[in-house]
Design a protein around this nucleic acid. Structure first.
Length: 256
DNA sequence: ATGGTTGTGTTACAA
């Protein structure tokens, strides 16, 4: 079972890219972020026509996440627990073929310091709490999405230039490390520890052409999921298309 | 070059 994650930066604009990816890469599950639309405006019919089930947690203008899956999406839940006042659409879970798939769009957190950075750290604390709950069930799960965290300087094209960015702050990295220390595995890093494997390139200043990227999209696997991990990687192709998202898909392959 | 681009949706804000 192949599970991919992709921040598409508007599903309305990126629908042709997404349908092309579904046809060519044919992932079993895709976690989408930044769909930037309400549920009613998500192009479900076009995606269902390609053989996928759809679950959406949308929001007007900003954020928004969705799950696409060839197999049924069971027990869908939306919103990250821990703050009933949080109205930003950044989290969705569903069970697919016995695997709990968690799609997430972690807050960017800039500027630092500020309310947005505080929100990011609080959101990460809630994600850690949710991971603890899921780990207690001792079942396979995958937390996949745009984490907006570069785990180390090796994940940044210009570490000095990004030293003050929310994506690289010690507090952000510490919380990502807490997820790892709970027993989760950064699957793409495990399979490619020596390489950059950037997943994001800024639209400005020719960043893509210069490979000035960041690794911020991750798939964290529970021990029971790691037992089934066969491969992991990043598909750079979509970032090179016309009118691309600034992110490209990352994925894992789990045995059946 | 105190810069650059994209998307939503109005001419600001988020990334």
């Amino acid at each position: 079972m192949r599970i991919a994650t992709w921040n598409v930066n508007s599903i309305k604009v990126r629908l042709p890219h997404v349908t092309e990816y579904l046809k060519t890469a044919a992932p079993d599950v895709v976690c989408l972020q930044e769909i930037k639309c309400i549920d009613e405006n998500f192009p479900a019919l076009e995606i269902e026509d390609l053989g996928y089930n759809v679950a959406v947690h949308g929001q007007k203008t900003y954020n928004g996440v969705a799950l696409l899956s060839k197999l049924p999406l069971d027990d869908v839940s939306t919103g990250l627990p821990g703050d009933d006042g949080d109205e930003q659409a950044r989290y969705i879970e569903a069970t697919v073929g016995g695997v709990r798939v968690c799609g997430l769009y972690l807050p960017n957190g800039n500027p630092v310091p500020g309310e947005k950075f505080d929100y990011k750290l609080g959101w990460m604390d809630r994600l850690i709490a949710r991971a603890k709950e899921l780990l207690a069930e001792e079942q396979p799960f995958v937390m996949a999405g745009d984490y907006n965290v570069c785990p180390t300087d090796g994940d940044v094209w210009d570490p000095k230039g990004f030293a003050g960015d929310a994506l690289c702050q010690p507090e952000s990295r510490n919380r990502f490390r807490q997820l790892i220390n709970l027993g989760l595995t950064d699957a793409v890093h495990l399979h490619n520890p020596q390489d950059h494997f950037y997943t994001y390139w800024d639209y400005t200043a020719g960043a893509w052409q210069k490979d000035h990227g960041l690794r911020i999209d991750h798939l964290l696997l529970s021990p029971q999921a790691v037992d089934r991990l066969e491969a992991a990687g990043v598909d750079r192709g979509p970032r090179g298309e016309e009118k691309p998202s600034d992110h490209t898909p990352a994925w894992v392959e789990l045995s059946e």
